[in-house]
Design a protein around this nucleic acid. Structure first.
Lengths: 145, 145
DNA sequence: GGTTGATCTAGAGTGCGCTCTAGTTCCTAA
DNA sequence: TTAGGAACTAGAGCGCACTCTAGATCAACC
């Protein structure tokens, strides 16, 4: 008889290297995140003391990566992890945290779009200029303008 | 007879404080940028040694702010400033620098948009959940998933 | 003349988010 | 059995972009 497929799916079979690979984080970063309390649960260990990550850890880390990539500070990530760690009952707070971040991301996108248009305009000025040959209306420390 | 309106428009009449105000940079940052060679020309000084900025400086700084805001490192900004300082003849290089940055900004926007959609999805999950009351399908360190 | 506030310089310090080091231990494959 | 590589810990170090400090000077106003 094969061992009963556990009703609690906790394989926890990925090494730190594999997890790094799957999440895009470095092994250093993974250990660092753990130390900082950014993970939801304690990471399992083998008899020899090596970390074993479960799929759920990878999933969580992937969200972390997206939140970080979009500028959420580690402190907020830690706060979020704490909420999740405390278990059910604080979903509204989690929602608020995510929602606030979402608004920041949207503001960021708008800001970047404005930067893009300023840059695009400047690129246009130069492109135009380069196409025509002579310097006018460009920054020139020695001349007017 | 009024002083002839200079044919080379170089008023250079803004204090560092006013310039900070107009550009959004701090006075510290303005001095820092200057030390780092991020300005195109040397900033004028009063007899007493105070900086006086011209409108052209403000204009340049505003572009700098946009480039920084969109993630251009100071090193690139410095390179750009050097090109401009060298005067006409390198417009193609300036264009390339700006164009490369523009592409990075666009990639950044796309990345942020992806983050946003991941976050939005998660926000949706929580919102849905909070609206309905009970915890399921959410991260719960003590339960399955 | 005196006070207040802005500005000056050179250089040290800060915050963030990792990244790297050193020295050791574990595991796998030959 | 041995060699190799991957992982372990604690803690130091780093890169970036400012930011702040100290102590002095300048400028405007009463």
């Amino acid at each position: 008889m094969p061992p009963m497929p556990s009703s609690r799916p906790r394989p926890a079979s990925l090494t730190i290297g594999e997890t790094a690979h799957r999440t895009g984080l470095s092994v250093h970063a993974l250990r660092f995140y753990e130390r900082e309390g950014l993970l939801v649960g304690p990471v399992e260990r083998t008899a020899g003391g090596r970390r074993r990550y479960a799929e759920a850890d990878v999933e969580w880390l992937r969200i972390c990566v997206k939140l970080r990539e979009s500028g959420m500070p580690l402190a907020d990530l830690k706060h979020f992890a704490e909420l999740v760690r405390r278990g059910p009952g604080n979903e509204a707070e989690r929602l608020e945290l995510l929602d606030a971040h979402q608004r920041r991301v949207e503001a960021q996108i708008r800001a970047l779009e404005e930067c893009r248009s300023v840059i695009a305009w400047k690129v246009g000025v130069y492109a135009d200029h380069v196409a025509r040959g002579k310097a006018e209306g460009l920054w020139d420390p020695t001349g007017p303008q």
